[in-house]
Structure formats: C-alpha cells, structure tokens
Design a protein around this nucleic acid. Structure first.
Lengths: 158, 158
DNA sequence: CAATCCGGTTTCATATTGCAACCCTATTGC
DNA sequence: GCAATAGGGTTGCAATATGAAACCGGATTG
C-alpha cells in the first residue's frame, strides 16, 4: 500500500520528514551542498536510478527545497540549485553527520574534517542549547503548555 | 527492487540515514523522547501498522538506538528505551523540528514551545558554529583535505 | 470462564524501488 | 553531413516494502 503521508500532522517533525524523510532526498540536498547542480552529476555521484532521481528532484522542487533553473543557451540544460529553505537544512545534515561519525565511523577512513573558511578551524559539535548557550539534553527540555488549551496532566518531555 | 543500502558508504550521512532514514524510525525515536516505551503506545500514538512497527523496533534495537527491556513481572511485557546513541539523535530531531516550524508551520496550531527545565525559557535556534561560536552557513564551511591523500583540484564546499 | 490487553505473526492488495532499455534534442568529431 | 555522444528524461518490468485487517497465545481482569 501507499506510504503513509504526514502532510497534515500536527507534528512539525513529521511534516519535515514528509519532505525530506525518504532515503534519497537528504542525500540529494547534501550533494547539492557539495556543489552538484546537474541531473547527470547527481545520478553518477549518488548512483541513484534515473526515474527515482526525476521523482525526487521534482518533489524537492515542488517543496521549494530546490529551484530548477533553465541554463539552456543551446539546447535544454537545467540546473537544480538550493533555495534558502534547502540551505537551511544545513544543521540537519551536520547533525546527522556528527551523529554518524560518532556512532558509525567508517572503518577505512577518518570522518570528513569540516572547517570554516575564515579561521580554518574545525566547526563545533552541534548541540541543543538553552537561552544562555548552555548545552541541554532530552531530559532538560519540556513542552510548555499553550495557555489557551485545557491544562494537561503533566509536563511532557521534549 | 530492494531499497539501496548505504552501510558501507564512505559518507557518514549516508550511513546515518541507513539507520534512521526511513519514514518511521525517526518518528519512533521522537516518540520515545516524549516518554513512550510500550509497543501498543507507539502503535496508537503513531498510527503505524503493527508489522511495520515490529520491523522498525527490531531494526532500531539491532542498531542500538533502542534497548528492549523485559519488564514482565507477570506475563510478557517489554519496554523499548532509548540508549545513549538514541538520545544523541536529539539535535537531529530538534534541527528537523525547527526547520519544519520555519518552513511548514501548521495552519491550525502554533509550533511546540520547547523550553528548558531549569530556566523555563525557550531553547535556542540550532546553528552550525565555528570554534568561537559564530554562526556558519553552508558556504562558510569546506572539507579540509586529508594530508595523506593526493591533493585535489580545489577545496570543496561542505 | 468469557472478555480484554499485550506483543506479535500472517495474509493479501497495493505502492515504491531499481535496472535496463528506449527517446528526443543538441553538440561534437571527423 | 553523418555517426557518436551528452543531457534529461520516459517506459516496462521484476523485486520489495508498506498498510490494513485478521488471527494467535499467554496473562489478567471481571
């Protein structure tokens, strides 16, 4: 049967996963962050089937994660470029990468060494922080109740 | 055909997606962060099919994101609890939530108001930062070359 | 002793995925 | 001027994954 959709879920995580929660979409976005823009390049670098790539690119364009730009001076040539919405997936990708590096390091290779251009020093480990910038774990965070709602039994964890 | 696997990919994002990159796994982890531990509760709160839930829970246990604990004083009762590895998906979930809140807000409801317990103030927007804590965009970050490798044509973006 | 809860397994119809082959336009190489 | 090749797809098919619902067996409850 059809995959279940969460377009109208009240949970924003579910709605986000609806757009980039499949096996390929985030990898396409990642590849775009590396600078890839052309259909054939995505296809070769990811090793994705062409029909699936068409489908994912269209979906990402529909969801405004990518923009399809016609660069066809002579003949049909297109580029798929990240939008601001797509670029704002950067923290998601970095969070996943750091988690993967920590718990599933590659046996053959060291993790990618990401640095910032101005200083040339490695970027920071991403962490959830409070208003002052102090790190928070799952257990430190709770969902504040909406005052207009009926009060619930107790504070839920994040 | 079978879904393509990335177990041995050199990319840690791909390897991470291999473990939690399907439609349900991250939602199960999220639900676990809310405090859900029992099979029936996951099933009812997520509306997931029972056979799929069994499969995902097993996969997550295999990957050490969850631990299956026998709490059967009388009769078979189990709890699925987050491991440290699972809890460390917190930044991933928060990053997705903030992205979803920003670009796909629910028309009916305000986004969840997450606060930290000690101060009661909203948590920070997650951001990729340099060593000093200054925010970085995709374009600020590059992949430092491994010195042992042959030098490549140019610095790639993150 | 029947009804219910918990944690599954089984069956079946439908979707999704991956591969490979094909297509059309446009640019090359010669 | 014509074949070869590149870009960006589409189509058909077989292998899988998903979802709904039925079934199951032990334990507890009424």
């Amino acid at each position: 049967m059809a995959r279940k959709r969460f377009d109208d879920s009240s949970c924003s995580v579910a709605r986000a996963l609806n757009e980039v929660g499949d096996w390929w979409s985030l990898l396409i976005v990642l590849q775009a962050m590396y600078g890839t823009r052309r259909f054939v390049d995505f296809q070769q670098e990811l090793g994705i089937a062409r029909n699936i790539l068409v489908d994912r690119l269209c979906r990402l364009v529909d969801n405004e994660v990518l923009r399809k730009v016609d660069v066809g001076e002579h003949g049909p040539r297109f580029e798929y470029r990240l939008t601001d919405k797509g670029r704002d997936l950067f923290p998601v990708v970095i969070a996943l990468r750091q988690w993967g590096d920590r718990y599933n390091p590659s046996p053959d290779q060291p993790p990618l060494d990401l640095r910032d251009r101005p200083s040339g020093r490695p970027i920071r480990q991403l962490e959830v922080q409070d208003a002052e910038g102090k790190p928070l774990t799952v257990r430190d965070v709770f969902v504040a109740e909406d005052n207009n709602e009926a009060p619930s039994n107790g504070k839920k964890q994040a």
